[in-house]
Amino acid sequence: MRTILNIIWLIFSGLWMALGYALAGIICFILIVTIPFGIACFRIAGYALWPFGYRVTERHDAGLASGVGNVIWLVVAGIWLAIGHILAGISFCVTIIGIPFGIAHFKMVPVSLMPLGREIVPTAQTYPGYRWSQPGYNT
């Protein structure tokens, strides 16, 4: 089911969103000072291509720099991206078939608001009992 949803998502929303995030990432890399934001843009672009079967988790090892970066990101781009995801989510939720895609847009709001200090992982890895969900496994 996730594969079918991801393919439909890719056609109607994902490809355009991923291209937008990738373009923003390239611009961030050109400006050199904003390279951490560029890395985050490319991570979000991958998530925008295939959101079903993945979720966003917070990294507990993120420090003060990611917090300051998130504040800068929030002011410069995060609010506008979040508004775009909210409007797209509402427009998808108008139809019954579009509800899963609207929910996927709503899932992307937190990572578009504050992308630094977050990690995109497969859904199965975030459930208790899995080895990957235990603190310190990825270090």
Results as ranks from 00 to 15, higher is better:
Ile7Thr: 15
Phe12Lys: 05
Met114His: 01
Gln125Gly: 00
Ile35His: 05
Ile97Lys: 01
Val75Ala: 14
Ala82Glu: 04
Ala48Pro: 04
Gln134Ala: 13
Glu119Gly: 02
Val76Ser: 10
Thr3Cys: 06
Ile8Ala: 15
Leu23Val: 14
Gly38Asn: 06
Gly63Val: 05
Leu113Arg: 11
Arg131Asn: 10
Gly98Leu: 02
Thr34Trp: 03
Trp73Ala: 08
Asn138His: 15
Phe52Tyr: 08
His105Asn: 15
Ile120Pro: 01
Tyr54Pro: 00
Phe42Asp: 02
Ile27Glu: 11
Ala24Ser: 14
Ala22Cys: 12
Val111Ser: 01
Ile26Cys: 13
Phe42Gly: 07
Gly53Ala: 01
Ala124Trp: 15
Pro115Gln: 06
Phe52Arg: 01
Ile44Lys: 03
Phe37Pro: 01
Gly117Ser: 05
Leu87Gln: 12
Asn138Ser: 11
Thr3Ile: 13
Phe52Trp: 04
Val68Pro: 01
Ile103Ser: 11
Trp50Asp: 00
Pro122Glu: 03
Ala48Gln: 02
Leu31Tyr: 06
Arg118Asn: 12
Gly53Asn: 00
Phe52Cys: 02
Ala124Lys: 14
Ala104Phe: 07
Met108Arg: 09
Ser13Gln: 14
Glu119Ser: 13
Ile11Ala: 11
Asn70Cys: 08
Arg43Val: 07
Ile35Arg: 03
Phe52Gln: 02
His85Tyr: 14
Val71Lys: 12
Thr34Arg: 00
Arg43Tyr: 03
Met108His: 05
Pro122Ser: 02
Ile32Gly: 05
Gly69Asn: 07
